[in-house]
Amino acid sequence: MAQVIVVTSGKGGVGKTTSSAAFATGLAQSGKKTVVIDFDVGLRNLDLIMGVERRVVFDIVNVISGEARLNQALIRDKRVDTLSILPASQTRDKDALTKEGVAQIIDELSQDFDYIVCDSPAGIEKGALLALYFADQAIIVTNPEVSSVRDSDRILGVLQSKSRRAEEKKEPVKEHLLVTRYAPERVERGEMLKLEDVREILAIPLLGVIPESESVLKASNTGSPVILDDVSNAGQAYKDAVARFLGEDRPHRFIDPEKRGFLSRLFGGRAA
């Protein structure tokens, strides 16, 4: 049986798709058979971030409506051979996703894969509810900013009441906090919520901290998940998070400001 992981946040634009792509790639790199599903019907983007946009033929809605078989819609990644992508539909409306349809897809994928990563759309409407419904574990993507923290708290409430595990009164969905777009310099200047504050407020176990990094934009420009960029801070932070998820004990990095030289401090230069 596969583990179903939802990557969710409530708020949009916080890094769910970036994190889903990085996480799924990282799990697959460590030998786990992994599939990542885009639940953002109408606003498909995971295909671009994964760099498979030109290979999309069928999508999740085609499978649910019986127009294509699951195997036909799955796209095998060319870089990591244990990784597959199931794209969202770009044209149909959200009502095309049904609970029964998604249940059947998850069921079928469960037989072939170790991990099923669900990239949730923003909001707490149907698409987001379906993305989290079947989850065994949840990665809560949060930016150190008031509205993102509040929405994360809200989505935690939804997980605890509206997921299948909650409805069937099973062991609750395992929650992980992933703080993204963290800027230690701004935290030091008192402009941004501290990691400790976010942890204290949300009170769920911390999986990782991904720094704000230019490498993320570069990665999305080229369609290569940032975790494949070994030299970037963000890539390394995602690697650490995946390792922790798989049980390794790794210290958190990139949470303190980089030490800057005397001259760059004197002239107010910004660290890259």
Binding site: V146, V149, R150, D153, R154, S161, E191, L193, D197, I201
Partner: peptide, 21 residues
């Protein structure tokens, strides 16, 4: 610095939202 205000406001609003949940 405004981060302190952010924390305080969040703690208050979430305490109430969790109760009403």
């Amino acid at each position: 610095p405004s981060a302190g205000a952010a924390k305080e406001r969040l703690q208050i609003v979430l305490a109430h939202e969790r109760i009403s949940r």
